[in-house]
Amino acid sequence: MSKIANKQKICEVLMEAAKTDKDIVALCSDSRGSASFTPFAEQYPEQFVETGIAEQNLVSISAGLAKCGKKPYAVSPACFLSTRSYEQCKIDAAYSNTNVKLIGISGGISYGALGMSHHSAQDIAAMAAIPNMRVYLPSDHLQTECLMKALLKDEKPAYIRVGRNAVDPVYEEGKVPFEMDKATVVTEGKDAVIVACGEMVKPAADAAKLLEAEGIRVTVLDMYCVKPLDKDAIVKAAKNAKLVVTAEEHSPFGGLGSMVSQVVGRECPKKVVNLSLPDAPVITGTSKEVFDYYGLNAQGIAKTVKENM
């Protein structure tokens, strides 16, 4: 099956929708190339705004356009969108409950060798802490397509974080089980639960296969909807399992692991192990090299499950 970057699929969905909906506007902060939005800018120049390296203006202009009846999609590197323009995201988009979709591209450690200045390892916690702001991390281009089509139908603010590179698909073409704001069950088992989001879903699913070969049955939840968190899915999967493991491309604080731990601790107390990036500048390398180093791969996740069963 073909590998397509999630950001490319976002552009494709918006270009198709823009054919008939002239209120759709894409905005970039000198990032149309890295965001794969050059085709949109070329085909719909009157529905495209280039702000330059000005992420705060990007969000404020988007909010203004939304108040005028437009449907803005603000596309910018996640590391800058979630930090430089945090106040604008909080006030102009969320506090005003404005129809602004914030697309954080090259999220997590996608920029690899560029280091901590270009990594977004705090954005899940930061964006989820803002009232009215939804947070989504789709796992592959197929799920990204479903999510974007769903977001086109509502008028609420949201932050969508995707990686930089093409990733192996989790699902099959035409067979994507998707319900808005509901976790997707990738595999089912009674021994342990792995809750993952974004690019961690594929290695979590692969870890489940490795564990199954050793007689350990695991439920894998694709929690693409980090906020609103599908608490019911977590409780249903965890209540009869021996262990819950979370996997995320994020700091150990305030992200998916923290949220899942709160739910499990309150509803069905048992051991929760959080797999994440360290509370330190990560090593230099490609996404795969970084994930391998910190055990955020199939082998590392499977090892964590076995060690904590």
Results as ranks from 00 to 15, higher is better:
residue 13 V to C: 03
residue 33 G to W: 07
residue 210 L to T: 02
residue 56 Q to Y: 09
residue 183 A to Q: 02
residue 108 G to T: 07
residue 305 V to L: 01
residue 69 G to V: 09
residue 118 H to I: 07
residue 76 S to M: 10
residue 70 K to F: 11
residue 289 E to L: 07
residue 133 M to R: 04
residue 52 G to F: 03
residue 183 A to V: 04
residue 294 Y to N: 14
residue 276 S to Y: 02
residue 194 I to R: 00
residue 81 L to G: 07
residue 129 A to I: 01
residue 127 M to W: 11
residue 290 V to Y: 07
residue 68 C to V: 02
residue 95 Y to T: 05
residue 133 M to C: 08
residue 289 E to P: 10
residue 274 N to F: 00
residue 63 A to K: 05
residue 135 V to I: 12
residue 45 P to Q: 13
residue 32 R to K: 15
residue 18 A to V: 08
residue 100 V to W: 00
residue 290 V to G: 04
residue 40 F to L: 10
residue 126 A to M: 14
residue 176 V to Y: 04
residue 238 A to R: 12
residue 182 K to S: 10
residue 115 G to P: 06
residue 184 T to S: 15
residue 146 C to I: 04
residue 81 L to A: 08
residue 8 Q to A: 14
residue 35 A to L: 13
residue 256 L to G: 10
residue 215 G to L: 06
residue 129 A to S: 15
residue 45 P to N: 13
residue 52 G to S: 08
residue 114 L to G: 03
residue 133 M to P: 10
residue 20 T to V: 08
residue 185 V to P: 07
residue 173 E to T: 12
residue 67 K to D: 10
residue 122 Q to D: 15
residue 265 G to P: 08
residue 34 S to R: 06
residue 239 K to A: 10
residue 165 N to Q: 14
residue 120 S to E: 03
residue 111 Y to P: 00
residue 67 K to S: 12
residue 109 I to D: 05
residue 19 K to M: 12
residue 285 G to L: 11
residue 235 V to Y: 07
residue 133 M to H: 09
residue 187 T to N: 11
residue 257 G to Y: 03
residue 20 T to L: 04
residue 258 S to K: 06
residue 308 N to V: 01
residue 88 Q to L: 11
residue 173 E to M: 02
residue 233 A to L: 07
residue 236 K to L: 04
residue 62 S to R: 06
residue 21 D to P: 02
residue 286 T to R: 12
residue 267 E to Q: 13
residue 114 L to R: 03
residue 122 Q to R: 10
residue 274 N to P: 04
residue 57 N to C: 08
residue 123 D to K: 11
residue 303 K to E: 13
residue 278 P to W: 10
residue 133 M to A: 11
residue 158 A to H: 02
residue 303 K to N: 12
residue 225 C to R: 05
residue 102 L to S: 12
residue 2 S to G: 04
residue 284 T to Q: 13
residue 8 Q to F: 05
residue 300 G to R: 00
residue 232 D to H: 04
residue 70 K to P: 00
residue 63 A to H: 07
residue 286 T to S: 15
residue 182 K to N: 08
residue 228 P to Y: 01
residue 36 S to M: 14
residue 171 Y to G: 01
residue 209 K to T: 03
residue 137 L to P: 08
residue 96 S to R: 06
residue 79 C to F: 15
residue 221 L to I: 06
residue 138 P to C: 10
residue 32 R to V: 08
residue 85 S to T: 13
residue 122 Q to S: 06
residue 131 P to K: 03
residue 20 T to W: 01
residue 14 L to M: 03
residue 186 V to A: 06
residue 67 K to G: 13
residue 57 N to K: 02
residue 67 K to P: 01
residue 163 G to V: 11
residue 77 P to F: 05
residue 224 Y to P: 08
residue 15 M to T: 05
residue 299 Q to A: 14
residue 97 N to G: 04
residue 121 A to L: 15
residue 261 S to Y: 01
residue 29 S to D: 13
residue 207 A to R: 01
residue 40 F to C: 06
residue 194 I to F: 00
residue 226 V to D: 13
residue 210 L to F: 01
residue 208 A to S: 14
